[in-house]
Structures are given as C-alpha cells and as structure tokens.
Amino acid sequence: MLQGQTIVIPPPALLSRAMEQQAIPFKGSIAAPQQQSVRWVGSLQKALNLGVLGADLTYLVNYGQTPQIPACFASIGALSHDLDLMQDVDSSIVVAIENGMEDPVQLLGLHSEFFRSMENYLKKNQRGDISAGILIGGWVESLYLIASLSDSTTTLDPLLAEQRYSAQGVLQLAKDIQDSTMIEILGDLEPLCEAFADLEHSYSFRDPMHDRREHITYLRSQSKVEFDIDQIEQLHALIRQTRQRIITP
C-alpha cells in the first residue's frame, strides 16, 4: 500500500465559515498586516505567509468585508508571483477576485479555485515543500483567528480543540520540510501540536447510513475532544507564539 503523507485538513474557508455562523462580530485587527509581504524573505517563509493571507482572505470574505479584500488579495498576488506560482492560474479568476463580488459564496469558490490551481502547479513541479508551507501557514492562521475570537460568550473552543485531529498530520508535514526556516518554526509548532495531542479524545462507532438514491452516506459515529480552561489557555498562547514566528519578517 502506498501510504500517502497527504492529509486533507479542514480548509480555512470552512473554519472561518464556522466562526461567521456563530454570529461572532468581525474583528478586523486580527488579520495579518499585509504591508509585511514585501519583507518576507526565503521561499518557505513566503509560502507560509501565503497560507496565512489565504486564511485571512476567507475570513474577510465570509464576513463580507468587501473593501478590505483587494488589499489582502494584492499581497497574495505579490507572494504568488514571487514564488512563481501563477502559471496555471486562470487570469479571469484573478480579475474576478480583484473586482470584488457581492456574493461571498461565489468569491469563496474563486478563492478556492485560485489556491487549487497553485496547488496543481506545485504538484506538477514537485515543489512539495512550498505546498506544505502554504497548508501549514493557513492552518496556523485559522487557529489564530478562532483563538482570537474565542471568549466566554462564544462556543469556538470546542472547534479549536477538534483541530487535534489535524495537528499530528500538520506536524509530520512540517518535519518533512528540510529548511532552516522550518527548523525555527518547529520550535513553536511542535509544542503546539503536542498540546493538541495531550487533549483527551473519545470515539464511539455507529453504523453509517447509506442513501443510495441521493448518493450520500451519513457518518453517525461520535467523537469528542475533552479540554479544560488551562489547556485552552495554553493552546491560545502557543498559537499566538507560532503565528507570530511565522509572520515576523
């Protein structure tokens, strides 16, 4: 069996939608400062921050922050050009995102198509480290957005704790990257992923239900990640630290 390293973790678009669905007010100050994009050096640091900005863009889109979208997308475009990733991106997607759209769902679709085109290009050219960097940056920024919006009035902490399921895969991806930037980041990312691994988790199997007519399977097994306030506070601190390490030029 070919045991692929590939993990498909919840994309930032889905995580930011979960935040928006809880009617948590928009907080513009938490997105990464875009003017730093010109100061990031090295391919991996650019890739990580491309992931960060991609997650920020989904946050802006999900919250309908149309005026802020062009600046964020301009930084994404600049990093993508620097990393030589635009070859497979359909220019009509870029134009459509730049022009902005009223319908956030349509815009999320374009955002996804933009990043998928780049991912396809990276796979074709066997630039797995850059691909992993984008994924890791996007994951850390999604955690940061969730943690920054989480307080006693929200129910975001369970969503944060559930990222335990992604943490080990993300850590493995990071460890496979041979780059001095990643060695530094692992100093923060590893304790973060270990803190996730320390959370108790339970799983109980229930038979799935298949609907042949609708071509859908209902997965009914139940899982739960347990946490206490100290563990969540520790996670918040580690997330802030890891994110800061990534975005600091």
């Binding site: 692929g4 590939t6 498909v8 998928r116 992604s166």
Partner: peptide, 25 residues
C-alpha cells in the same frame, strides 16, 4: 466549494493508495 488541497498519485494495478482527511461536524 472545492478544497484546494487534494490527493494525487500514480498507481500500478493492484496498488492501493491512502490519504487522511478531517471532516468537520
């Protein structure tokens, strides 16, 4: 909405490839 991250592999007949995914409730 398509997830930008996807799985791709070249398989020989009888090979089996696997990848992991996390699906949110």
């Amino acid at each position: 909405i398509v997830d930008p991250n996807f799985f791709q592999a070249e398989l020989n007949p009888k090979d089996e490839a696997s990848f992991r995914a996390v699906w949110l409730k």
